[in-house]
Design a protein around this nucleic acid. Structure first.
Lengths: 123, 123
DNA sequence: CGGGATCCATACTGATACTG
DNA sequence: CAGTATCAGTATGGATCCCG
């Protein structure tokens, strides 16, 4: 038996003409794999978090990039923003259904990276 | 029974103090999820490819970023570079064992993105 | 063919100040 | 608390030319 009996993911992707510059996939890919996008999505995988919690949790992020990245993810429908109009104000961020779905595919990758990072950087 | 009986990926990550600025995971994450890193890894998932093939396959990449990203991935031990000293010279790139392992975790994510990109960008 | 070197544009960051 | 606005510095990516 040959190994070419089933269509690879890459072949599927290319067959659809995806991953070209003009393709929506590239936009989504850029958002999802952006420097801070991945981290925010992962940190939201467990529970909803408040703005200040996220700022403290995601080490090194500037307030500007936190706001900007959250807005992008919200626009993409991956993250839900819930405002509670109290004093002081409270804003919670959580994953949407779409976001949860995405993060399911993201976590195995993160886990692998955490497990193998030392092997890679050590070189 | 409660839902907290098993440790989530995020909890594992945080317990190890991973994902902080100084952590190797962040370096690897930046390389792997870099704008072009993901695409090159995915395109190499099927077979080894030559420099020129990659340049044509990865739509929009500049020669500089192709060279730079390939060098980073090679240093990380994810991509193997094989030079054949002919005239004209021939250079083939392929995934290492480590790279193959990584891409296995990357492909489900890519597949999801390709399948859902239209829902996301349409907003 | 497979790059390296150079220069320029943009994106990101950091610090600070201000608001509802 | 949860942002927005602005400015300045830096890092990153892109375009072009050149070379073995």
């Amino acid at each position: 038996m040959t190994v070419s009996s089933q269509v690879s993911v890459l072949q599927r992707i290319q067959a659809e003409g995806a991953l070209t510059t003009s393709c929506p996939t590239r936009t989504v890919l850029d958002h999802v794999t952006s420097k801070w996008g991945v981290l925010l999505l992962v940190f939201l995988s467990d529970k909803s978090m408040r703005w200040g919690e996220l700022r403290r949790a995601v080490d090194g992020i500037s307030e500007k990039m936190l706001a900007q990245t959250l807005r992008t993810l919200e626009t993409d429908g991956l993250v839900h923003r819930e405002v509670t109009a109290t004093v002081p104000p409270r804003v919670d961020y959580s994953l949407t259904e779409l976001g949860t779905d995405l993060v399911e595919r993201l976590l195995p990758l993160m886990e692998w990276i955490v497990d193998n990072a030392d092997d890679i950087v050590g070189r």
